[in-house]
Simulated assay, not measured.
Amino acid sequence: MGHTVLLLLLLLLSLGVCAVHCAGGHVFQYLITRILFPTPGLPMYSIILYLDDLKCGKYSSDTRQAQVLISLDGLINILPQKVLAVHLEMQTKFAQELEITERDEMEFIMGFSNKTYDKGQFHVYQRKFVCELNEDGTTSGYEEIALNGKEIIALDKEKVVYVPVMQEALVMMDQLNKRYDHAVDNKMYMENECIQQIKLYLYYLSADLNRKVSPKVKVSSSESESGTKLHCWAYGFYPRDVEVKWIKNGRDEIYSEESAEILPNPDGTYQIRVSVEVTPEEGATYSCHVDHSSLEDRLVVPFESSNRSMLYLLIGGTALLLVLASFALGIFIYTRRKSKGLEKTGETA
């Protein structure tokens, strides 16, 4: 029963199945999260669904209602409002049933993992279900279950069973596969119905998926222990893929020791900040180069002269401090010598 609900949910919530671009292909991704106890600001249970980069739908225990997270203007021209309402009602019903199933499975896994149910403990159960339609027409996919951020169970599509990824999950696998016997159905869905859903909704959501939003860019600087850091913040762009790098004197790339992560914005766009550490050099120029599919040409944002002047001010200030320190040291030495000279004169007298 629980697995049937899972399959139907995946089918009916395809407005929200997550897909990421992969070399011209498309992906459905479906993410479930459950936490053990109520926590301020977090639903105890949630489903987030995407098509490619597009977050399309969600369900949470706070509202207990399935929601579409995309504009319905284009869909209403294809699907009447009444049909959409029935669609959401069915999604809600199956999500509510799946919520109960996932609660039971989390408790089962925690019991075998010797996890306590103390309210001071924060435990998180996550399930990821993915199917992929590759550019050459082949299909693939995977399913994973994690507890407290660590993957513990995965679907083995060859043996068509769930297998342990961590040693601690080994003791429960036989009972888990008997109690939650849905590996066969999940594999079939992954390779068949899920792929058909990708093709269907690519048509419905083509306008959303093909939209392009150009990045906005800001550059700034800050001081660090070993020099100066230059920051390039690109934000508000879509789709996700972007290249951001710092260039010195118009030709030399400056490599960053910090890994830059592309992060989602609430409006469905993305952002990234790339920072590099430099040693200020008078006359050197620095610029941030941003390459994105929404741009006809690469966007080049120079580190403005007003900002560079801060570098030069730093250089000048450092030099001035050295001069003042040298001057003060000279006066100190001169005073000491003069003082010793007067002392010797006094002794001679």
Rank of each mutant, 00 (worst) to 15 (best):
S206M: 00
S294G: 09
A66G: 12
R337D: 08
T4D: 15
K93C: 13
I76Y: 06
H21V: 05
H87V: 01
I247V: 15
I247H: 09
S224T: 11
I145H: 02
F122I: 09
V20M: 07
Y50C: 00
L8C: 04
V301K: 10
V244L: 11
H3I: 15
E304F: 12
P80N: 02
F237P: 01
F129M: 12
M188H: 13
L155R: 02
K248F: 03
R34I: 07
I198T: 00
V163E: 05
Q197C: 15
I48S: 09
Q29I: 01
V86K: 10
E135N: 15
Y235W: 12
V323P: 01
E151Q: 15
F28C: 10
E105A: 11
I47E: 04
D241K: 13
D73E: 12
L6P: 00
Y312E: 15
Y235R: 08
E107G: 01
H87R: 10
V17Y: 02
Y117K: 14
N77F: 00
K150A: 13
Q196T: 06
L36T: 06
R273Q: 14
A260F: 01
I145C: 08
S140F: 09
E296P: 05
E99L: 05
Q175R: 07
I47A: 04
S256K: 05
G268Y: 03
D136M: 08
N249Q: 06
A349Y: 09
L72G: 00
Y162V: 03
G317Y: 06
M172I: 00
I333P: 08
H123I: 09
R251F: 13
Y255C: 08
L342M: 11
P38N: 05
P266T: 08
A325D: 09
G317V: 04
T318P: 00
L133C: 03
T4F: 04
F122W: 04
C131T: 12
I254P: 04
L54W: 01
M90Y: 06
E253A: 13
A146W: 02
P43L: 05
L311Y: 01
E135G: 03
A23V: 14
L69S: 04
T318L: 07
P40D: 15
K178D: 05
Y162N: 02
D104T: 14
E223D: 10
W233T: 07
E225D: 13
T139A: 11
H292F: 06
Y45R: 03
L9C: 12
G341V: 03
V276A: 04
Y334S: 12
D53C: 11
T4S: 11
E107N: 09
Y142I: 03
H26V: 04
Y201M: 08
M44Q: 13
Q271N: 07
K340D: 10
I109V: 07
V86T: 07
I78H: 01
Q81A: 13
V242E: 01
S14L: 01
T348V: 14
M166Q: 14
Q29V: 03
Y30G: 02
D252E: 13
G268E: 01
L98A: 13
L31C: 09
V86C: 08
S61A: 07
